[in-house]
């Protein structure tokens, strides 16, 4: 009996099993090699931050510093006011998150739930700013804030966030639309005002979207470089990104890579920690806004 005489489908079934197995193996190999490539820079950064100055220049390279020079981090804090810069960053970032969540959720509730003539047109106009390259506004905004005497203060970094962000409004509105109306209707029959419905019914239900907005705002504000670069001139007001840039610049003659990498690592720790704590919401948030709706 030859193979062709076998009942149809049996040979392909075996074949399919084997092919699935090969496919899985290839998948794992490709993804693992890629993952290695993606993680090596971070590994390199952290190990460099724990090397002695001499070890950073050695060839072949020192992969694992022994002993790890944890005092590099202490040296960084001693020689530069890193603690101050971190506090500045924490302050600005916190204010921006509060402002964005508050103002954007209010607007999003209005756009999602309250009827008003012309409301949807206004929403579309607001939304269109998402397609505007942000850098286009940098110069006129600078002139505006200069007129307001806001240069060298945190106001240009913080105040606009209290007046909504198109992206956050959009994300929150999309989420509010998915909340069943019945709850609000019941509350209205009980005589609750719109502000109370917003604060006591809608907001508590919308926390996944609020977390996503807070996360994106955190990333944007923590990593904001151009804003502090043009608005802050006193070095004691610097946030971390601008401070890092000056650190890099001041070491141009004799780069101390171990200290630079320690500083870079410090600036990334909050992002990494937040990411691991809230990975789910990061990815979900993108999906909320992504394309649905």
């Amino acid at each position: 009996m030859s193979a062709t005489a076998l009942p149809h489908g049996r040979a392909p079934l075996l074949d399919r099993k084997r092919r699935a197995w090969i496919k899985a193996a290839v998948t794992y190999i490709v993804l693992s090699v890629g993952a290695l490539l993606f993680l090596t820079p971070l590994f390199w950064q952290i190990t460099t931050s724990l090397k002695t100055s001499a070890d950073t220049m050695k060839y072949p390279p020192v992969w694992i510093p022994s002993p790890p020079q944890f005092q590099n981090y202490a040296e960084l804090f001693e020689r530069f006011p890193i603690a101050l810069y971190t506090l500045n960053s924490v302050f600005v970032t916190t204010m921006v998150i509060i402002g964005t969540v508050l103002s954007s959720s209010l607007a999003a509730y209005g756009f999602a739930r309250l009827r008003m003539p012309g409301r949807d047109v206004i929403f579309l106009i607001l939304l269109s700013t998402l397609l505007l390259p942000g850098v286009v506004l940098i110069i006129p905004q600078f002139v505006l804030f200069q007129r307001l005497q806001w240069i060298n203060t945190y106001n240009p970094l913080i105040v606009p966030s209290f007046f909504g962000s198109a992206f956050s409004i959009f994300l929150l509105r999309q989420f509010f639309l998915t909340i069943p109306r019945e709850l609000e209707d019941a509350a209205r029959i009980d005589g609750a005002g719109f502000l109370r419905i917003y604060a006591q019914i809608v907001m508590p239900l919308a926390w996944p979207a609020i977390i996503a907005v807070a996360l994106y705002t955190f990333l944007g504000a923590w990593n904001n470089f151009l804003g502090p670069l043009i608005y802050l001139s006193d070095s004691e007001k610097y946030t971390l990104p601008v401070a890092l840039r000056y650190l890099q610049g001041s070491m141009r003659t004799r780069p101390e890579q171990h200290l630079l990498m320690a500083a870079a690592t410090l600036s990334m720790i909050p992002c990494v920690v937040t990411f691991f704590l809230a990975q789910r919401w990061f990815m979900q948030g993108q999906v909320f806004t992504g394309v649905k709706g």
Partner: peptide, 15 residues
């Protein structure tokens, strides 16, 4: 693969 994307900013440029 997602991790580097949340690490944008000056620290990444220094690296």
């Amino acid at each position: 693969y997602y991790l580097p994307a949340v690490l944008s900013g000056v620290g990444v440029v220094m690296l």
